[in-house]
Design a protein around this nucleic acid. Structure first.
Lengths: 218, 218, 218, 218
DNA sequence: CATGAATGAGACTTCATTCAT
DNA sequence: GATGAATGAAGTCTCATTCAT
């Protein structure tokens, strides 16, 4: 009977482990894809990083491509859902809101694994169009909606001039995208202090965007 | 004498063909690199696209990396040099100069094969640091120098506020980089009119950068 | 329980096969290296002779050079070690010991695959210095040490004159080396009876080396 | 007319050069074969060393193999013909003659290009049996004849014991062969002073060969 | 379910040989 | 005769995928 219990317990543990297997593998794969890109990533390395045999990967994923897609799907969403909520109940000037939002996005892009995902999407997107689509729908379009909300808030409250930026709100985060690329490619040749660069960008942007105070006064 | 002429002519033709071989190969290579990325490009395909045997490539280039560098040298750099010259003898307001420069760069990035090169560098730069270094030295650093010149001109002539942008002039072209990525990845889900977007960016930028006319007046 | 045994047995069999794989490969490699030399040996041929796929070789050996070293390690060195042991507890006159040692070495050189290895080292050592160095350290230097021991024993026991041969003990086996070359190159034009030749060499050598018995008497 | 003369002169020079072409090529090839062995020698290198185009080699030799054979044929014979004559009119003790002969041979082997030829023959002999045959007939058999003459002279004059060495006179030069191999393969790991080694060999040899003086006296 | 040995297609690169000039 | 650009077969090594255990 003790044996039976033991077996059940073992089974439970095995079960638990089994359920987590795919995530363990995608987590390991993210690291490898991030480091080496799609083509150069070896499943051997993914396997040993995940602590499983190479063949095991094929129990959960049909192919390397399939694994890649799973990685993008599973790692992007969770890391992005947090940002939106910040905006919901913000009080105070829209300038501060935008400033906060842009800094947050930029830091998320550059300092988490997201910048690797971005690189992967950029690099391999054409090869796997459904990935781009997935990424656009789940991430990009949400981000654009958020930024449009902020811009509208600023205009509505008479804080921002309406320059038509809601057509291409992605312009707001182009420095974050540039930084993403810069950090993973040119940082060693010409380092960039993300905060200073962002402050510069935001200052110029707000200067260009704000309703001039003298006009407001006049 | 007719013979002599004949021989000379033949020689000339052969010579011309020989001289053009490398360009034929780099042209084919550009197409393949753009389509598949660096690692996934097969020299076999480059060769057959160029209409030569595989071994012929090695008569002119030491390795795949060497071939890639030649592609950059022959397609990217010349375009940059043209831009550089535009600035040399520009008269008129720096605002116009900057506007022209940024539009030109953005169009070059997005509408030529350069955006493929950029994607490739972003995607595989870490795997082949040679490429990144080469690209930074030959292209990026030159571009940064040009932009610093423009900024300095604007400040010197009392047209621009000195906000410290010369520290990270790459901010100026971050929309071009963003557009590069956008066009090859998300264009079909949310089209972007490059010109309109650029105008927006430039307007905001200049608004934020220019010495306010009322200050000037006051 | 029967099942357990069955499984254990199966495992054991699989294990055994797995364990033998490297030897199967080195055995095949020896044949190919011997026949064609190092550079001209194709791993394709090694693989098909060993009855495995080309890639399988790389599961066990890092490179062609590595494979060669393994061949030497597994075929040459064991034979040398056997010889070494013979000396360990030899009693009796050093003359007999030397005679036995030289004959043994010569036979090992000429009548086993070792002479092919020697030819290969001679032929391609300069091109692949790795091989020479490895062979010298693993084989030659050990052989020299053995011979120095024998010479010292002879001198210590008052059997040999001390002529300084310990400086270049390789002189002792130069006939074996010559025979190695002769057998694989000139044997068909002028056959050489290895035993008779060795006896001749050893007789002359010992005659020249031994402390004259009349001196000993006188 | 001046032109005609000029042309004739040029033609003569060209002719002269043409006649020497093959030798220039084989000379260059010897250097390359010696340095790298047969397989690793590139005709590109041979051509540029000879100062001709690669295609030119094929005007004079059918293939790389053909060139190799020509090299052996043209470089070995001349370098070997000199030795024989030394013996013809030697007076004095046969011991001195043998000593001189062996040293001469060894130096010729080791310090000229001959040791490269020997290596080539050893290395590639099996691949090209007609080369071995050629070499044996032209070189080896002559050398053996010379050594037999010396041995016979020694025995006839009562200087040497008749131990039957005339059966395998190649034993006499086995140290030279060993040295040949040693110098090109192991010299850097364990240097060998050719002269000292030879003196050792010869002393032992003569000691073993000579009719003992005390016997002669007694 | 899990393993990891085995596979074999395919990549880059080299180089003997050919041939138009 | 001489050139040297061009060829393409062949070699080593890698790695996604399979499958017997």
């Amino acid at each position: 009977m003790a044996e039976t219990i033991g077996k059940t317990a073992e089974k439970a543990r095995a079960q638990r482990r089994k359920d987590e297997r795919p995530q363990e593998i995608t987590a390991a794969a993210l690291k490898e894809f991030a480091q080496r890109g799609f083509a150069a990533t070896r499943l051997d390395d993914v396997a040993s990083r995940a602590g499983v045999a190479k063949g095991t990967i094929y129990l959960y994923f049909d192919s390397k491509v399939d694994l890649f897609k799973a990685v993008v799907r599973e790692t992007v969403i969770p890391q992005f859902e947090q940002v939106g909520n910040l905006l919901a109940d913000f009080e105070g000037p829209t300038e501060d809101l935008l400033r906060m939002f842009l800094k947050r996005i930029a830091h998320d892009f550059v300092e988490t694994d997201i910048h690797h995902i971005i690189r992967l999407i950029h690099a391999e997107g054409q090869q796997f169009p459904d990935l781009s689509e997935f990424y656009f729908k789940e991430v990009i379009s949400r981000g654009m909606a958020r930024m449009r909300e902020i811009l509208a808030r600023g205009v509505d409250r008479g804080e921002f001039r309406d320059v038509g930026l809601e057509a291409y709100p992605q312009l707001l985060i182009s420095p974050a995208i540039m930084a993403t690329m810069w950090k993973s490619t040119f940082e060693s040749y010409s380092p960039m202090d993300l905060d200073r660069a962002l402050d510069l960008h935001i200052d110029i942007l707000l200067n260009g965007l704000k309703v001039p105070s003298n006009e407001a006064q006049g």
